[in-house]
Write a protein that binds this DNA or RNA. Sequence first.
DNA 1: GCCAACGTTGGC
DNA 2: GCCAACGTTGGC
Length: 156
Amino acid sequence: MTDISYWLMKSEPDVYGIDDLKKEGKTIWDGIRNYQARNFMRKMELNDLAFFYHSNCKPPKIVGLMKVTKKSLIDPTQFDTQSKYFDPKSLKESPRWDCVELSYLGQFNNPLSLKELKDFYSAEDLLLVRKGNRLSIIPVPEMTAKDLLNRLGKFS
DNA sequence: GCCAACGTTGGC
DNA sequence: GCCAACGTTGGC
């Protein structure tokens, strides 16, 4: 029995929201084009849990929970010239971008808005609330994750 | 729509 | 390696 890690992943509900994930059951988290975010994704292990955060909306908030069900996948959009994530500098022999597969676990009864998160946690507890933070994938310390799970309540 | 806080690019 | 210019994220 190995310990799992906890993560928080942002997505704009207009682009891909928790409802889309619920419908599909699972998704490839592609389109990540930030090295820090990618490196965090590379540290993910099977069965890790990830909070689904709705960004760029009113209000931004944590809405659901996901589980890592596949790791170290090559992001296919980097080779797709039709995709907005196409990366001409990425080589087939050495792909620059990879991703994980996440499966839907549920939506919380008590979503937590960014404002609430700022009230509850410091930047050390939760990178999300650090001023100027733009990373779309961040690690969540276990203590914070457990506290979050308590506050977010059961799945609706 | 504004803009702060980044990250990336490319000339030098 | 430095840094100015530019692009993006995402809260407000």
